[in-house]
Amino acid sequence: MVQTICAHCVAYSQLRQLALEAKSSAAANCVNSASLEAFCSAVKTELSLWGRLIDFPISNEAERHDKAAYMLGLR
């Protein structure tokens, strides 16, 4: 589960960075198709990892706590 949380954290961070770049580009009226494709790909990756995290089976209370703490921390 820790690997899934770490992978999601990286994907979420990349998505946020691309969103900020897209916001800046939109303000300057210079959004390009490569940026849009990168953003869409990042969204798909983040959603896939989020789904894997949701579906991840809990083995013990420590995992339950870690999973809940991470997921609620992103709200």
Results as ranks from 00 to 15, higher is better:
Lys67Trp: 11
Leu49Trp: 02
Leu49Cys: 01
Tyr12Lys: 14
Val31Cys: 10
Ser35Leu: 14
Ala68Ser: 05
Ser41Cys: 05
Glu61Cys: 07
Ala19Pro: 03
Met71Ala: 03
Thr4Met: 10
Ala34Ser: 12
Ser25Glu: 08
Leu15Asn: 01
Leu49Met: 01
Leu20Tyr: 09
Ser13Leu: 12
Ala68Arg: 08
Ala62Gly: 04
Asp66Tyr: 05
Met1Ala: 03
Glu61Pro: 02
Tyr12Gln: 11
Glu46Gly: 05
Val2Asp: 12
Val31Phe: 15
Leu47Met: 06
Asp55Lys: 10
Tyr70Trp: 13
Val31Tyr: 10
Cys6His: 14
Ala7Ser: 06
Arg75Trp: 15
Ser59Thr: 04
Ala27Ser: 10
Asp55Phe: 12
Ala69Asp: 01
Trp50Gly: 04
Glu63Leu: 03
Ala38Ile: 02
Ser13Tyr: 15
Glu21Tyr: 09
Ile5Leu: 03
Leu53His: 03
Ser59Trp: 09
Glu63Lys: 02
Arg16His: 13
Gln3Leu: 13
Ile5Asp: 00
His8Gly: 04
Tyr12His: 15
Asp66Cys: 07
Ala27Cys: 08
Phe39Ala: 03
Pro57Tyr: 07
Glu46Leu: 08
Val31Trp: 11
Thr45Cys: 06
Ser13His: 15
Trp50Cys: 04
Cys6Thr: 07
Arg52His: 13
Thr4Gly: 02
Pro57Met: 07
Cys6Asp: 11
Ala19Lys: 05
Ser25Asn: 10
Tyr12Asp: 06
Glu46Trp: 12
Glu61Thr: 03
Leu49Pro: 00
Val31Met: 14
Ala22Ser: 09
Ile58Glu: 01
Ala62Trp: 15
Ala68Gly: 02
Ser33Glu: 10
Ala26Arg: 06
Leu47Lys: 08
Ser59Tyr: 07
Val43Ser: 01
Tyr12Ile: 12
Gly51Asn: 11
Ala27Gln: 08
Glu46Lys: 12
Ala68Pro: 03
Ala34His: 07
Met1Pro: 00
Asn32Ala: 09
Gln17Cys: 12
Thr4Asn: 05
Lys67Val: 03
Ala28Gly: 09
Asp55Val: 12
Leu20Pro: 06
Gly51Glu: 05
Ala68Lys: 07
Asp66Ala: 08
Asp55Met: 14
Arg75Gly: 10
Thr4Gln: 04
Arg16Leu: 14
Leu74Phe: 15
Leu36His: 06
Ser59Leu: 09
Ile5Gly: 00
Ser24Trp: 07
Asn29Asp: 12
